[in-house]
C-alpha cells in the first residue's frame, strides 16, 4: 500500500517534470525560444485554440469527463469556421459592415450550440455522436458558403486583432486572457459554476441537491458555441481571412489542450484555466520543435508521444480513487 502511494506521488509529478525537462532542453537548443518576442509569438499562435478550449472545458465540466457518456463538444471548431466564413463572405464579398456581419455569425454559432443542446438534452443522444454529426453538417454548410475558396479579410478590426497591441501586449493575447478570466470566474467562482461542476461530477448527486442538471447542460453547449463565435474573429485575424480546412487542426489542438490541462490541475480534472494553459503549452511545444529544426517528418510523432506520457500518467494517478 505504501509502495503504491509512493508510486502515485511520483506519477503526480510526471506531467510537470516532462514539460519542465522539455522546455529546458528546447531552451538550450534554441536560445531564441524564451525571448519576449518568441513568448508573445507563442501566445499569439495559441489564441484561437485557447478560446475554443474554454468552450470545450465548460462542456466537459458540466457534462462530466467520461469521453463517451460525459460532456464533449466536437463542433466548436466547426462553429468557429462557419462564423469566420460568414464574416469573411459578408465583409469581403458583400460589403456588409462588420458589426452586422458579426451579428449574422453570432446567430449561426448559437444555432449550432442550440442544436447540440437539443440533440443531447432533449433527444438524449451521446454528446460525442451528436456534436460530431452537427460538426460534419456545419462544415458542409461552410463549404457551401465559401465554395471551398479562400476569402481574404482586410477589415481594420480584424487586422487590429492580428497586429494591434494593448499596453505593450498583442491585442489578441490580451483579449484571450480576459476571456479566460471571465470563463474562469463564471465556472469556478460563482454559484452557477459550482452547480455546473456538480452536474458534471455526479448527475444524481446534483439532482438530489435540487440542481436542474438539464438546464446546466443545455447552457454549457450554448456557452461553448459562443466561444466558437469569439474564436472566429481570431481565426480570421490569424489567417488574414477564411481558409478552408482550418477546423481540423483546431479540433485536434482543442481536444489535446483541454485534456492536457486536466493533467496539470491538482484534482486531475478539466478546468477553465487548465484548458487555457494546455492550449498555450501545445503552441509552445509546436514552436519549440520548429525552432530547433527537428525533421518535419518527426515533429508530430514526438509531440504525440510527449502528450501521451503526460495524460497517461495523470490518468494513472487518479485510477481507483473513488
Amino acid at each position: 500500500m505504501i509502495a503504491i502511494q509512493f508510486v502515485r506521488k511520483l506519477l503526480e509529478w510526471v506531467p510537470v517534470a516532462v514539460f519542465a525537462l522539455m522546455f529546458i532542453f528546447l531552451g538550450i537548443e534554441a536560445p531564441t525560444l524564451f525571448t519576449p518576442f518568441t513568448i508573445d509569438l507563442m501566445l499569439k499562435q495559441a489564441v484561437p485554440t485557447v478560446v475554443v478550449s474554454l468552450g470545450l472545458a465548460v462542456v466537459i465540466i458540466t457534462g462530466g469527463d467520461d469521453v463517451v457518456s460525459g460532456g464533449i463538444d466536437l463542433s466548436i471548431p466547426a462553429a468557429a469556421i462557419i462564423a469566420a466564413a460568414i464574416i469573411a463572405d459578408q465583409v469581403t464579398n458583400h460589403g456588409t459592415a462588420l458589426p452586422i456581419a458579426l451579428a449574422f455569425a453570432l446567430l449561426a454559432a448559437i444555432t449550432v450550440g442550440a442544436l447540440n443542446a437539443f440533440l443531447v438534452v432533449m433527444i438524449r443522444m451521446t454528446p460525442l455522436l451528436a456534436t460530431l454529426a452537427s460538426s460534419v453538417a456545419v462544415v458542409g454548410i461552410t463549404k457551401m458558403i465559401t465554395q471551398s475558396k479562400r476569402i481574404n479579410v482586410t477589415d481594420p478590426f480584424i487586422v487590429f486583432l492580428r497586429d494591434g497591441t494593448v499596453i505593450g501586449l498583442s491585442a489578441g493575447v490580451v483579449a484571450a486572457g480576459l476571456l479566460t478570466l471571465i470563463y474562469w470566474f463564471l465556472m469556478h467562482q460563482t454559484r452557477w459554476g459550482m452547480q455546473a461542476q456538480a452536474t458534471g461530477g455526479g448527475r444524481e448527486a446534483a439532482d438530489i441537491s435540487g440542481i436542474s442538471t438539464k438546464r446546466y447542460q443545455a447552457i454549457s453547449f450554448l456557452l461553448a458555441a459562443f466561444t466558437g463565435f469569439l474564436a472566429s474573429m481570431f481565426v480570421l485575424a490569424r489567417g488574414s481571412g477564411s481558409s478552408p480546412g482550418t477546423e481540423e487542426n483546431l479540433l485536434l489542438e482543442m481536444v489535446l489542450a483541454t485534456f492536457l490541462g486536466a493533467a496539470f490541475s491538482p484534482r486531475r480534472k478539466v478546468t477553465v484555466w487548465g484548458a487555457a494553459l494546455g492550449a498555450v503549452l501545445v503552441a509552445m511545444l509546436s514552436v519549440g520543435f520548429k525552432s530547433i529544426g527537428v525533421n518535419v517528418f518527426w515533429t508530430g510523432c514526438i509531440k504525440g508521444a510527449l502528450i501521451l506520457i503526460v495524460v497517461a500518467s495523470a490518468a494513472a494517478t487518479t485510477r481507483g480513487r473513488y
Binding site: 454559484r191 459550482m194 452547480q195 461542476q197 456538480a198 461530477g201 455526479g202 444524481e204 448527486a205 446534483a206 438530489i208 441537491s209 435540487g210 440542481i211 484534482r267 486531475r268 480534472k269 480513487r321 473513488y322
Partner: peptide, 17 residues
C-alpha cells in the same frame, strides 16, 4: 451521492453555495 473530486466544503454546500 457525492462528487469524488469536490472538496468536503464544496460537497456540503452543493446546491446551496
Amino acid at each position: 451521492h457525492l462528487v469524488p473530486h469536490f472538496t468536503v466544503a464544496e460537497s456540503v454546500f452543493m446546491g446551496q453555495e
